[in-house]
């Protein structure tokens, strides 16, 4: 039996702060609230549309290259606009596909954690990003108790 909520970390841990999503996913894997499933991958993929249909709520955990705060948390509206590359599928587009083809009824959220270094081919978060990870985790744990 699957949980009601899925936390889906997105990013490449070999590219510094791009690994914020998987890092937060790992935190939750280590200490996971009841009814919550956790997964992580390099990027969103077409079959995630199918996965979306199996949950009441899905939160995508991603790094963000923009923003003043430590993180943003928003509900995603479906948008069928498509991208120009198989290497980039955006949450609104995944949600559209999930609704149209896989009868998904759940809600999709994106937690975007501010990162700074996406270019170095190295493991590990920058210091500021690591602090943002802490704040994001605290927020998400709070949100999950209410969700």
């Amino acid at each position: 039996m699957k949980g009601k909520v899925l936390l889906l970390g997105i990013g490449n841990p070999s590219r510094k702060d791009d690994g914020l999503g998987p890092a937060l996913a790992a935190r939750f894997e280590a200490d996971c609230p009841e009814g919550v499933d956790v997964d992580a991958n390099y990027q969103l993929s077409l079959e995630d549309a199918c996965t979306l249909s199996e949950y009441e709520k899905v939160v995508i955990l991603d790094a963000s290259a923009k923003g003043d705060g430590a993180f943003t948390f928003e509900e995603v509206e479906p948008d069928p606009a498509k991208e120009f590359s198989t290497h980039l599928i955006l949450p609104p587009s995944i949600l559209s596909i999930a609704r149209e083809f896989f009868q998904a009824e759940g809600l999709l959220y994106v937690l975007g954690m501010r990162g700074y270094d996406f270019e170095s081919f190295e493991e590990g978060l920058t210091e500021v990003a690591a602090a943002n990870l802490e704040e994001s985790e605290a927020y998400l744990r709070g949100w999950l108790t209410e969700a």
Binding site: I10, G11, N12, R15, D17, D18, Y42, Q43, D62, A63, S64, A65, K66, G67, E83, F84, S85, T86, H87, L88, L90, V110, G112, G115, F118, E119
Partner: peptide, 19 residues
């Protein structure tokens, strides 16, 4: 561009980066 299906994933794909 899409016809070529270029590789981009060697790069990163954080939110806020323009497609």
């Amino acid at each position: 561009i899409r016809a070529y299906d270029p590789c981009l994933s060697c790069a990163t794909h954080a939110m806020g980066r323009m497609p």
